[in-house]
């Protein structure tokens, strides 16, 4: 079974520049869904965030005690999400929205050196694809 990569046109072009060996086994599908991000939309998503994972809860407790921006940044940089459930990670991606993911995909595409790197890109692109499809819902 071919692995699917949902890529925007610019990302597709970067993928085409990779060696044939690296491209092998991947089927590229153009990501045709789009979403207009605004600070208001992003703000509402943030307001609706409710997390339950104990690891995230203890991270939040520690974050609340930080009174200095540098200390808070240090805490954020030390954080890892291993062991956090997929459902909770999904919530964080929902808050983040699809816009930063495109930038990450483009940047990672330029550092690909092995198949695992493409797998990581595929993971982010899959999340973006599903996120974009959910964000198309306008109203009932």
């Amino acid at each position: 079974m071919m692995n699917i990569l949902h890529l925007k046109p610019a990302e597709k072009e970067l993928f085409k520049k990779l060696s044939k060996e690296l491209q092998e086994g991947w089927s590229v599908e153009e990501e045709s869904q789009s979403y207009e991000e605004t600070p208001e939309k992003s703000n509402v998503r943030l307001r609706l965030l409710r997390v339950h994972d104990p690891k995230i809860a203890s991270f939040m407790d520690a974050a609340e005690k930080k009174k200095d921006a540098n200390d808070l940044a240090e805490l954020v940089l030390d954080t890892d999400l291993s062991g956090v459930s997929e459902a909770e990670i999904a919530k964080l991606f929902f808050v983040l929205g699809p816009t930063p993911l495109g930038k990450i995909i483009e940047a990672l595409m330029q550092t690909v050196s092995e198949d695992n790197d493409i797998k990581d890109i595929a993971a982010i692109a899959t999340i973006r694809h599903e996120l974009l499809s959910s964000l198309q819902i306008s109203s009932k």
Binding site: L46, L49, L72
Partner: peptide, 13 residues
């Protein structure tokens, strides 16, 4: 990971 963690603190603190 940093982006996701930053989005968390943006909501809370």
């Amino acid at each position: 990971t940093t982006l996701l963690a930053a989005s968390l603190v943006a909501g809370g603190v």
